[in-house]
Amino acid sequence: MLPSTDDSILEDTVGAQLDSEISSLQSQSKHPLRTHPFHLTPLVLSLKAARKTQATTILSSRATQATLSRLRASQKPTTSHQTSSETDISPLLSSATAQAAHSTENLYRTCAGITTFRIRDPDPHAVDSGHVLGIRIDVSTSGKFVRPYYIMLNKPWAGKELLRVHRHTVPACIPLAALAERWLPNGKGAVAMGGKEMGKKQDLSRFVRAVRREVVGYHNRISIIKGLRREFKLDEKVSRKGKGRERIIADITAADAEAKQVRIEWVDGRIGRAVVDDRGEVGKCVVVGEDGRDREVERRVVAGGMEGIGERLREGMY
C-alpha cells in the first residue's frame, strides 16, 4: 500500500516534536541530565541519527517519489489567504529535492570513482598553452566519502602526446612517482619513451586505476586499524578498577606511512608486527616476548585477512 501524503507530513511533525522535547530537557536546570550532559549526548546523537536514516529511507522510496510527483503537479501557489486547514508542503518538497540530488551524487561517486575534466592554467607562460587534464578520484571508507583526490596532467613536450604529472593532491605515502614511471613513461633528457624508440607506450587508463587501487587499499587499511582500536577500546581511558584491568592489547598502530605494516603491543610486553599486502591479507607476522617468539599467535594472525584479526587475537585470550 502506498504511503499517503499525511503520513509523510506526520513523520516530519513527529520529528519536530522530538527535537522540541530534547531542547526542553536540555533547558531544565534541575534535571539530572543537565548535571551530567555525557548521559544525554549519546541519546541525542542516536535519536537524531535514527531520525535522519528514517527520513532518508522514506524520501528515497519509489512510493514516496510517486506521491511527491503528484503533489508537485497539483500544488497551488501559496497565498496570504491560505486557510489553517491547508498544509504548506513546500518544506517537504524541498527536502525531497535535496535528498534526490544527494542520492544522485552518491550514486555517481560510487559507480564512477574516476572522473576526468579539462582546466586551463592561468599562467601565460604555462606549457601547452595552459591546457591541463584533471583527474578526480573518489574513495569511500566506513560508509562515508573522503575528500576527493586530484591529479593534474599536462603535455610539456611540443609535438608529442606524452603526458606528465603536473600537480596532485594524492597522499605522500602513495607511490605516485613509481606508478607514473611505469604507466606514463616519458623518458629523461633527449630520449622520450612512449614512442617506437624504447617500445614503451603510455597507458593513462592503467595509471589511474593503479593509483586509485593504492588509495583505496590505503584507506581500507587505515579504517581496519581504527576499527581494531575501537574493538579493543584502546582510545578509551583505562580504569584501574573493573574491566580496565582485563585489557590484553595495549596498542595497535600503523608501523609505516602506507599502513602496510601493523604494530601490535600486548600488555604483558609482547610486541608483534604484521605485514599486509595490497589485498588486505596478512602475509607475514612476527611476535616477540620475554620468552622469544610466540609462534602460536603468529600462526593465528597470519591465518586470514586484516578484517578478522580482532577475533583471531581473542582466540587465545579467553
Rank of each mutant, 00 (worst) to 15 (best):
Q75Y: 06
I137T: 04
I58M: 15
I58H: 05
S94C: 03
Q99V: 05
T53P: 00
L71Y: 03
A98E: 11
P175G: 02
Y108M: 11
V139W: 00
H102P: 00
H168M: 06
T116N: 10
S94K: 07
P91G: 06
K48N: 12
Y108A: 12
W157C: 04
T97L: 08
S69R: 12
V146F: 07
A158T: 13
P171R: 00
V170A: 03
T97H: 10
N154K: 07
T41Y: 04
S85N: 10
S94E: 14
V44E: 15
A177N: 07
Y150M: 08
K155I: 06
H81Q: 13
K155G: 01
M152P: 00
Q75C: 04
D138N: 10
S129A: 15
S60W: 01
Q99Y: 01
C111S: 12
S60V: 01
P77W: 04
S69T: 11
A101N: 12
V139L: 05
A126L: 04
T83F: 07
R136E: 13
R51H: 07
A101M: 08
S69F: 07
A177F: 03
T97N: 06
H166W: 09
P42G: 03
K48R: 15
Q65W: 00
H168Y: 03
A50N: 13
R51T: 07
F145V: 04
E161F: 04
H166M: 09
Q82V: 11
C111L: 14
S140C: 09
D128C: 07
D138W: 04
R109E: 09
Y108Q: 15
T87V: 13
I151L: 13
A126M: 13
A98W: 02
L68I: 12
F145P: 02
P175Y: 03
P91N: 08
P156D: 10
R118W: 08
S74L: 12
